[in-house]
Amino acid sequence: SHLLLVEPDKIFAMADPTTSDTDDKVLTTLCDLADRELVVLISWAKHIPGFSTLSLGDQMGLLQSAWMEVLILGVVFRSLPYDEGLVYADDLIMEREQCRTVGLLDLYCTLLQLIAKYRKLQLDKEEFVTLKAMALANSDSMNIENIEAIQNLQDILHEALQEYEKNRHLEDPHRGGKLLMTLPLLRQTANKAVQCFRRIMAEGRVTMHKLFLEMLEAKV
């Protein structure tokens, strides 16, 4: 219930209305959206019980490793009601053809696979917010100082998920496990997304904001 309360408000893509819709403009809009979402994501992380008591270094380590997984879970959850469209924001829904023309077809296909998994499970909002926090706590960052504190954070979240499933989804005793077993594909998808945006960054096709660039460069 705490995670539901601290869930951030919707963010809109707000594409620049003064320029025409080129491929690079779509990418610029997407990168700008990601940059603004990152600011929100960092402040959201601080509201996860136990996160703010970690050392600053460990907070940075978790965010630098897991930020794309958290962003992707958001896209995936928003896209659940849509057939074959990626809801990057309510005003930026991308379908196959548009993803193909901007060079994000590969990412689109992986995202659809992930969306299909969660759709089959009928992922609900409580599970979505818990999985997001788990993705952050379970980032497997190489630069963690206090492993015990991170383990404690993971245990608290795991317990919350188990408790929720025990009360709300009695019909399937394996549901919690099924949800956790989606995390490898989430990581794989996030790695693919980071590679895509690094490529776009290297090509110099779009101007990226500093925080997005910083996070892309931090994720080795």
């Binding site: 600011v39 402040s43 601080k46 907070q59 940075m60 630098q64 910083e214 996070m215």
Partner: peptide
């Protein structure tokens, strides 16, 4: 940490 100064600053922000 110098390389990640925006993240560092945002984490230290109290808001």
């Amino acid at each position: 940490k110098e390389k990640h100064k925006i993240l560092h600053r945002l984490l230290q922000d109290s808001t």
